[in-house]
Nucleic acid binder design. Structure first.
Lengths: 205, 205
DNA sequence: TAGGGCCAGTCTGTATGCAATACTGCGCGG
DNA sequence: CCGCGCAGTATTGCATACAGACTGGCCCTA
């Protein structure tokens, strides 16, 4: 039985709200605490954690602000996540990689099964998480986990186009295929391409 | 004038104590707060930040522990930092890279000038910080900054040997030389080698 | 009318208080 | 002798309280 602390749940909730743009730019701790039904203490602990990760910015003496959206930031985050994930893949044993494709395709199946226009983002997350799950470097996984939420703020528009969704799913299956045939470097290259194309699509819209 | 918050200073102080091994494995918040002359609130905020970065581990219901030293972890951290720094170098404009070597060598001079057996670590940090200072990706720099303290726990023995210190300084100068001649990829390769050799040295002792 | 300074209200940053849970030491039973 | 249970203490996690900093507006002045 793994005990959850309030600040952990708050981090999830606040992250969701930031991604939805459902939060004032300037955060009022008293109001937000009341709204969430907790005291300021665990709320501030969560805010500090989110500021460490870059989703918020701490303005000493003035509290916390939601980090401003900046197209330039997206152009830096996508390649960063691409490199980090590709690194994680290179640090997964070839044997483990060959065990993944079936489960990966199962998740891809879920994506195709979803009603058109549904939000693929959550399922996509599970796919990537599974892909990297066997990486032997826990610190790298931590960095990835911390960085991805930043990227999701920009990703919201990404799966908007149906044709792009289909294309992305196909890319995921190609990665699984490469792994099945034991082609680690090929899979890594495809993974990077997937992120690059995601950014390219984003830039066009 | 940039205002400092208590938790920031506490993070520095506690980090230093962890690196020196000057802290009980199990952290008692009341005792430590009294010792540092602050209340538990900003102390806890600092501890949470350090746990996020992996220097401490949060044990829900039981507070914070100093993360155990683990040779296996060192074998994962060194290549990780090597990859991250090399990435940062690749994401620095070639023009900016050519501007760095002189200042880098100046810091290397400081290292040679230090009395034998002195702690080179702090100066070495400044060298690397300067090397990466022109990287265009602030998020990557943040990840590096968060990861390096973990590594320094193992590094403490690294500069112990005088001959290794001299060798390391030479490697630093070689990197600066590569940059001077506009050879970015060469510099990157040398940088990775520097980290790899550091780990190899560590493993031998 | 524009600009600056002052003042009250609001909010953050830090300290303190409280309840629940985890630890410690001892006695007891197997 | 070792393991278990239990009572008392210690410690965490969360809530509340307090002091100082920031904000916004009003008035006064040039």
């Amino acid at each position: 039985m793994t005990k959850r602390l309030l600040r952990g749940e708050l981090i999830e909730e606040i992250t969701a709200r930031v991604l939805d743009g459902r939060l004032d730019d300037r955060i009022n701790e008293v109001h937000l605490a009341r709204e969430l039904g907790v005291s300021r203490t665990p709320l501030r602990e969560a805010l500090i954690g989110l500021a460490d990760r870059g989703l918020l910015v701490a303005a000493p003496g003035r509290g916390f602000l939601v980090a401003p959206l900046d197209p330039e930031e997206a152009r830096r985050l996508y390649p960063l996540v691409a490199e980090l994930e590709s690194l994680a893949l290179r640090w997964t044993s070839p044997l483990d990689l060959t065990l993944l494709p079936d489960a990966l395709d199962a998740i891809a199946d879920e994506m195709t099964a979803l009603p058109a226009g549904a939000d693929l983002s959550a399922v996509d997350d599970r796919w990537h998480e599974l892909l990297l799950s066997r990486c032997t470097n826990p610190h790298l996984l931590r960095l990835i986990e911390q960085t991805k939420p930043l990227l999701k703020r920009y990703e919201s528009v990404y799966f908007g186009g149906l044709e792009r969704a289909a294309e992305s799913i196909a890319e995921h299956r190609a990665i699984a295929d490469a792994l099945r045939s034991g082609d680690g470097p090929g899979a890594t290259a495809l993974l990077v391409r997937n992120w690059v194309k995601a950014l390219a699509y984003l830039e066009r819209s």
